[in-house]
Simulated scan of single mutants.
Amino acid sequence: MVRKLIKYDFQSYFRLLFPVQLIIIGFALINRLVQFFEPASDAAEAASTVYNSVFVSTLVLYILSIFVCLVMTVIVGIIRFYQGMYTNEGYLNHTLPVTPTQHIFAKLLTSIIFCLGADLAIFLSFMVITAGEVNIEVFKAFTFLVGQYFANTGLNGALYVLEFILLAIVSVVFLFLKLYFCISVGQLVKRKKILLAFGVFFGIYVTKQLICTVFAIFVALNLDFMNQIGDWINSSPNVAFHIFFCVAIIFYGLFALIYFLITKHIMSKKLNLT
């Protein structure tokens, strides 16, 4: 049954997001075709002006399409969770032999897959827009930088890459679970549910800003202590970076778990579809 839920969500995502991903690649292709008509350096000023205008316009459209794709991926994830759990569709889904944990897992897995799909579409579009000699030069520069990176960092460099990938995955999971949490809390009232969900999200944002402000004040009042930490980071940068990644992973992972448990509790004990 969980596989069927994932398949159904996958089809919904695909219908909404695949055309957007094709648009990204399409704008990249148009921009690349425009590059073939670049006038020579001694060409008339009018020709250069026209070319620059068309090139910049297609490039702006390409960048905007990337932004739209990333935003839509998150928005579709929110809508699919809301529709599947707390609208008329929820009446059917909650009668299926599927636990709240499995429901959350199905929505989360599909969202993550299409986040990766958006990244893949962006990568392919970049390959298209830099096709030819530029692509070769970019590849050479990339391989050179990667070689230099591992030559300078060694085993620590490989660990940094793994920690960064893990942090990226945990961050995406954290983001969607936080949104699921806000939507679920919003369903605890009978009226203005979406408004409450926005309020919860805004409340989390304000709380985070207050914590950052308090931390900034703490730093300002303890400059000697912070200078000591800075000296330690300069003397042991590898250990400091590993600690930073591990702390960030634990932080996001812990809050993701909290959001998941609260969302699961609401779906199990406080479900309100009225």
Rank of each mutant, 00 (worst) to 15 (best):
V2D: 00
K7I: 01
Q11R: 04
F14H: 03
F14I: 01
F18M: 03
Q21R: 10
I23G: 09
G26H: 02
V34I: 08
Q35Y: 08
F36C: 10
E38Y: 13
A44I: 04
E45V: 10
E45S: 14
V50K: 10
V50C: 05
V50Q: 05
Y51H: 08
S53K: 12
V56R: 08
V56H: 11
V68Y: 11
C69Y: 10
L70C: 07
T73A: 09
I75F: 03
I75T: 03
V76M: 08
G77N: 00
R80L: 07
Y82P: 11
G84I: 00
M85N: 04
Y86L: 04
N88K: 08
G90C: 03
N93F: 13
L96M: 15
P100T: 09
P100N: 08
I104Q: 00
I104T: 01
A106W: 00
K107M: 04
L108M: 10
L109D: 03
L109Y: 02
T110G: 02
S111L: 08
L116R: 06
L116V: 09
G117W: 08
A118Q: 01
L120P: 06
S125F: 11
G132D: 03
E133V: 09
V134K: 14
E137I: 09
E137K: 09
F139T: 12
K140A: 13
A141D: 15
F142M: 13
F144M: 13
L145C: 11
V146H: 07
T153A: 12
T153P: 05
G154W: 01
G157K: 05
G157I: 05
A158P: 14
L159M: 04
L159H: 13
Y160C: 12
E163C: 11
L167C: 15
I169M: 14
V173D: 00
V173A: 05
Y180L: 05
C182T: 13
V185D: 00
V185G: 00
G186Q: 00
K190C: 04
K190Y: 06
L196T: 12
L196H: 02
A197M: 01
F198E: 00
G199I: 06
F201A: 15
G203E: 00
Y205C: 10
V206C: 05
K208Y: 15
V214I: 12
F218V: 14
A220C: 06
L221Q: 10
F225V: 12
Q228I: 15
D231R: 14
V239K: 07
H242Y: 11
F244D: 13
F245C: 04
F245I: 07
V247Q: 12
Y252L: 09
F255M: 05
L257G: 07
I258N: 06
I262R: 11
K264H: 04
I266K: 03
K269V: 06
L271H: 01
N272R: 00
